[in-house]
C-alpha cells in the first residue's frame, strides 16, 4: 500500500515535470509543424538562469518567498530572448525547406547552445535549493514528501488548463487553431501567420524554460540536462500525438507513472520502459494517442 502511494505520488510529480517540458514542444509542433530539438536548450538555459537568479536573490535580504519570482523571471527572460532570436534569426529562413532539414537545423542549434552554455556557466554544477528548503516537507500516510515537488503538480495543472482555455476560449487561440487547420487559407483570410508563428514559438520557448527554471531547485544543475529532457519530451509528445495538448498530458502521466513504478519495482529497466511504451503505443496507434485528424488525400 505504502509502495503504491509512493509510486503514485512520485509518478505524478514526474508526470508533471514531463508535461511541463513536453507541452511547449507539442504547442510548437502543433502550430508550426516543427519538431524543435532546441527545446532541450531552452530547458537547460532556464535551469541555469533560474539557479543563478535564485542565488543572486538570496544574497540580498529581501523577503524569502520572493525567490519564487526569480524562477518565473528566469523563464521569461530565457524564453523571450531565445524564442525571438531563434525564430526570427534562423527558423524563418527555413520554413520552405523539408521538415527533416528543419529538425536538423534545430539539432545543430542545440549542439551549438550546449557549448555556449558551458562557456557561460562552466562545467561545475549549480545548486539553488533555497525555494525547496523554504517549503519544507509533509507527511502523507506516514511517508515524507517535499512540498516543493508537490507544487509542481499544481503548476503543471495551471499551465495545462491555461493553455487549453487560451486556445479554445480566446480570440487569439481561435486564430491559432485556424492556422493549425490550414496555413494557406488562414493567410488568405488575412491572419498574420508570421506573427502567429513568432508568438507561438516564444510561448513554447517560455514553457521549456519554465520547466527548467522550476525544476532547478530540486536538481544539481549541470551539463547534459538538456539532452535528457529533449529525449524524454519527444517520447511523451509522440505517445500523446504530436501537436495535442491533452495528448501531452496523457502521455506524461503514462510515462511518469510507469517510470516511477519501474524505479521502485524493476530499477534495471527504468531507462527503456519509456521507449518501450512509446514503441508499443506507436505500434497500435501510429499517429499517437490523440493525433489531430488528417485531411482526405485522394
Amino acid at each position: 500500500m505504502q509502495e503504491l502511494i509512493v509510486i503514485l505520488v512520485d509518478g505524478l510529480v514526474f508526470s508533471s515535470y514531463l508535461f511541463m517540458v513536453a507541452v511547449g514542444l507539442t504547442v510548437i509542433f502543433g502550430v508550426m509543424k516543427i519538431l524543435n530539438v532546441t527545446h532541450g536548450s531552452f530547458y537547460a538555459f532556464g535551469a541555469y538562469m533560474s539557479a543563478t537568479l535564485i542565488g543572486a536573490y538570496y544574497e540580498t535580504d529581501w523577503p524569502e518567498f520572493g525567490g519564487f519570482l526569480a524562477i518565473f523571471a528566469a523563464a521569461l527572460i530565457i524564453g523571450v530572448f531565445f524564442g525571438i532570436v531563434l525564430e526570427r534569426g534562423l527558423l524563418r529562413f527555413l520554413y520552405h525547406r523539408d521538415e527533416h532539414i528543419i529538425v536538423l537545423a534545430t539539432f545543430a542549434m542545440f549542439l551549438v547552445l550546449e557549448d555556449v552554455l558551458m562557456m557561460i556557466w562552466g562545467t561545475d554544477p549549480y545548486y539553488a535549493y533555497e525555494p525547496m528548503a523554504l517549503l519544507g516537507i509533509v507527511d502523507i500516510a506516514e511517508l515524507t514528501f517535499d512540498v516543493y515537488s508537490l507544487t509542481l503538480i499544481g503548476l503543471a495543472a495551471i499551465v495545462g488548463l491555461g493553455l487549453w482555455l487560451g486556445l479554445t476560449k480566446t480570440k487569439w487561440g481561435k486564430l491559432l487553431l485556424a492556422v493549425i487547420f490550414d496555413r494557406e487559407i488562414s493567410q488568405a483570410m488575412g491572419i498574420n501567420v508570421t506573427v502567429v508563428f513568432t508568438v507561438t514559438f516564444v510561448i513554447g520557448a517560455i514553457m521549456g524554460a519554465l520547466g527548467g527554471a522550476y525544476i532547478a531547485p530540486t536538481i544539481s544543475v549541470s551539463p547534459g540536462i538538456g539532452v535528457e529532457v529533449i529525449v524524454l519530451a519527444f517520447a511523451v509528445v509522440v505517445i500523446g500525438g504530436m501537436g495535442s495538448i491533452p495528448g501531452a498530458m496523457i502521455g506524461a502521466v503514462l510515462v511518469g507513472v510507469s517510470r516511477a513504478a519501474a524505479v521502485h519495482k524493476f530499477p534495471e529497466i527504468e531507462l527503456f520502459v519509456i521507449y518501450a511504451i512509446m514503441a508499443l503505443v506507436l505500434a497500435i496507434r501510429p499517429e499517437g494517442l490523440f493525433a489531430p485528424a488528417q485531411a482526405r488525400k485522394i
Binding site: 519527444f234 509522440v238 531507462l271 521507449y275 506507436l282
Partner: peptide, 25 residues
C-alpha cells in the same frame, strides 16, 4: 515501414535508445 517523416525518424531513435539502455545496464 508503416511510418513516415518525423515518426520514422523518432521511432528509430527510440529503438536505438533502448539498445543504449540495455548496454549501459
Amino acid at each position: 515501414r508503416r511510418y513516415r517523416a518525423i515518426f520514422f525518424a523518432l521511432l528509430n531513435m527510440a529503438f536505438s535508445m533502448i539498445l543504449y539502455g540495455v548496454i549501459v545496464k
